[in-house]
Protein backbone atom coordinates (compact mmCIF):
# COMPACT_ATOMS: atom_id res chain seq x y z
CA UNK A 1 0.00 0.00 0.00
CA UNK A 2 1.39 3.41 -0.97
CA UNK A 3 1.31 6.25 1.54
CA UNK A 4 -1.37 7.97 -0.53
CA UNK A 5 -3.53 4.83 -0.29
CA UNK A 6 -2.77 4.69 3.42
CA UNK A 7 -3.98 8.28 3.77
CA UNK A 8 -7.25 7.39 2.05
CA UNK A 9 -7.70 4.43 4.38
CA UNK A 10 -6.76 6.50 7.45
CA UNK A 11 -9.56 8.97 6.77
CA UNK A 12 -12.00 6.07 6.52
CA UNK A 13 -10.50 4.39 9.58
CA UNK A 14 -11.02 7.34 11.93
CA UNK A 15 -14.73 7.45 11.17
CA UNK A 16 -15.04 3.67 11.46
CA UNK A 17 -15.92 3.11 7.82
CA UNK A 18 -13.29 0.53 6.90
CA UNK A 19 -14.71 -2.90 6.23
CA UNK A 20 -13.20 -5.81 8.20
CA UNK A 21 -11.17 -7.14 5.29
CA UNK A 22 -9.64 -3.71 4.75
CA UNK A 23 -8.67 -3.42 8.39
CA UNK A 24 -6.03 -6.13 8.16
CA UNK A 25 -4.32 -4.50 5.21
CA UNK A 26 -4.56 -1.09 6.89
CA UNK A 27 -3.05 -2.36 10.15
CA UNK A 28 -0.15 -3.92 8.22
CA UNK A 29 0.48 -0.64 6.43
CA UNK A 30 0.21 1.20 9.74
CA UNK A 31 3.09 -0.85 11.11
CA UNK A 32 5.05 -0.29 7.94
CA UNK A 33 4.69 3.51 8.00
CA UNK A 34 5.36 3.78 11.74
CA UNK A 35 5.34 7.23 13.32
CA UNK A 36 4.62 8.96 10.02
CA UNK A 37 1.46 6.88 9.74
CA UNK A 38 0.46 7.47 13.37
CA UNK A 39 0.90 11.22 12.92
CA UNK A 40 -1.36 11.18 9.89
CA UNK A 41 -4.04 9.17 11.71
CA UNK A 42 -3.86 11.70 14.55
CA UNK A 43 -4.44 14.52 12.12
CA UNK A 44 -7.43 12.73 10.62
CA UNK A 45 -9.23 12.83 13.96
CA UNK A 46 -9.69 16.54 13.30
CA UNK A 47 -12.44 15.38 10.93
CA UNK A 48 -14.52 14.52 14.01
CA UNK A 49 -14.23 18.07 15.26
CA UNK A 50 -15.17 19.44 11.86
CA UNK A 51 -18.29 17.30 11.56
CA UNK A 52 -19.44 18.41 15.01
CA UNK A 53 -18.82 22.06 14.17
CA UNK A 54 -20.85 21.67 11.01
CA UNK A 55 -24.01 21.14 13.07
CA UNK A 56 -26.26 23.81 14.50
CA UNK A 57 -25.59 23.73 18.27
CA UNK A 58 -28.53 22.35 20.24
CA UNK A 59 -29.95 23.84 23.42
CA UNK A 60 -28.48 21.94 26.33
CA UNK A 61 -30.51 21.69 29.51
CA UNK A 62 -29.49 23.66 32.62
CA UNK A 63 -31.08 20.91 34.73
CA UNK A 64 -28.76 18.36 33.16
CA UNK A 65 -25.80 20.57 33.97
CA UNK A 66 -26.97 21.02 37.58
CA UNK A 67 -27.29 17.25 38.01
CA UNK A 68 -23.90 16.72 36.41
CA UNK A 69 -22.16 19.23 38.65
CA UNK A 70 -23.85 17.76 41.74
CA UNK A 71 -22.62 14.28 40.79
CA UNK A 72 -19.11 15.54 40.09
CA UNK A 73 -18.86 17.44 43.36
CA UNK A 74 -20.22 14.48 45.34
CA UNK A 75 -17.72 12.24 43.62
CA UNK A 76 -14.88 14.67 44.36
CA UNK A 77 -15.86 14.81 48.04
CA UNK A 78 -15.95 11.03 48.32
CA UNK A 79 -12.44 10.63 46.87
CA UNK A 80 -10.43 13.59 48.17
CA UNK A 81 -6.70 14.01 47.92
CA UNK A 82 -6.06 12.09 44.73
CA UNK A 83 -3.07 13.70 43.05
CA UNK A 84 -3.70 15.03 39.55
CA UNK A 85 -1.95 13.17 36.74
CA UNK A 86 0.99 15.02 35.25
Amino acid sequence: MSFKEFQNCARLYVIGALDPEEMTEFENARKEFGQKGEDYIGECYALHEAFALSLQPAKASNAIKDQLMTMVRERAQSTPGAPPPD
Partner: peptide
Protein backbone atom coordinates in the same frame (compact mmCIF):
# COMPACT_ATOMS: atom_id res chain seq x y z
CA UNK B 1 -10.25 18.63 34.73
CA UNK B 2 -7.08 16.65 35.19
CA UNK B 3 -6.62 18.49 38.49
CA UNK B 4 -10.24 17.56 39.39
CA UNK B 5 -11.47 21.15 39.29
CA UNK B 6 -15.26 21.05 38.89
CA UNK B 7 -15.35 24.68 37.74
CA UNK B 8 -13.33 23.72 34.68
CA UNK B 9 -15.94 21.10 33.81
CA UNK B 10 -18.68 23.68 34.29
CA UNK B 11 -17.00 26.00 31.79
CA UNK B 12 -16.38 23.21 29.29
CA UNK B 13 -20.07 22.30 29.56
CA UNK B 14 -21.10 25.89 28.89
CA UNK B 15 -18.75 26.06 25.91
CA UNK B 16 -19.41 22.73 24.21
CA UNK B 17 -22.61 21.13 25.48
CA UNK B 18 -24.52 22.62 22.54
CA UNK B 19 -22.15 21.16 19.97
CA UNK B 20 -22.01 17.76 21.64
CA UNK B 21 -25.76 17.62 22.07
CA UNK B 22 -26.24 18.48 18.40
CA UNK B 23 -23.94 15.60 17.52
CA UNK B 24 -25.83 13.19 19.78
CA UNK B 25 -29.18 14.37 18.42
CA UNK B 26 -27.92 13.83 14.88
Amino acid sequence: LQAEDAEALSQLYDRYSGILKALILR
